[in-house]
């Protein structure tokens, strides 16, 4: 039994914590933080499980995938923050208007 599994479980926990906050909080900055934490959780699962064999040299493929993922995450975060600032610039509030403004 290696500690890799424990890290993978922490990763799953982070994913679900982030998902909870994403749905449960209204403030957009909070939602963006929540998505980043969800992402960290997924990356942790991907890499931790690669080390479960206990080899000194873990599988490098998930490592490369996570580096790719980190870059996607920062790009998406930058775009999300810009949109948040535009929304709050127009409405004075960093929240989404109520659902279905038809």
């Amino acid at each position: 039994m290696s500690h890799a599994f424990a890290y993978a479980l922490v990763g799953a926990g982070l994913f679900l914590l982030g998902l909870y906050a994403l749905v449960a909080y209204a403030h957009l900055l909070r939602k963006i933080l929540a998505l980043n934490i969800m992402g960290s959780g997924v990356f942790l699962v991907l890499v931790a499980l690669a080390k479960r064999t206990g080899d000194a040299e873990p599988d490098p493929v998930p490592h490369a995938m996570v580096i790719t993922g980190i870059v996607v995450a920062v790009s998406a975060t930058a775009l999300a923050l810009a949109l948040m600032l535009k929304v709050s610039g127009k409405t004075g509030q960093a929240v989404l208007p109520g659902r279905h403004q038809d």
């Binding site: 998902l19 994403l22 957009l28 939602k31 998505l35 969800m38 998406a76 775009l79 999300a80 949109l83 948040m84 535009k86 929304v87 127009k90 409405t91 989404l96 208007p97 403004q101």
Partner: peptide, 15 residues
């Protein structure tokens, strides 16, 4: 309306 629906869209896509 476009900005806030794009924001909601982005959050849903990323999740």
């Amino acid at each position: 309306d476009a900005l806030s629906s794009a924001m909601r869209y982005l959050l849903a896509m990323l999740a």
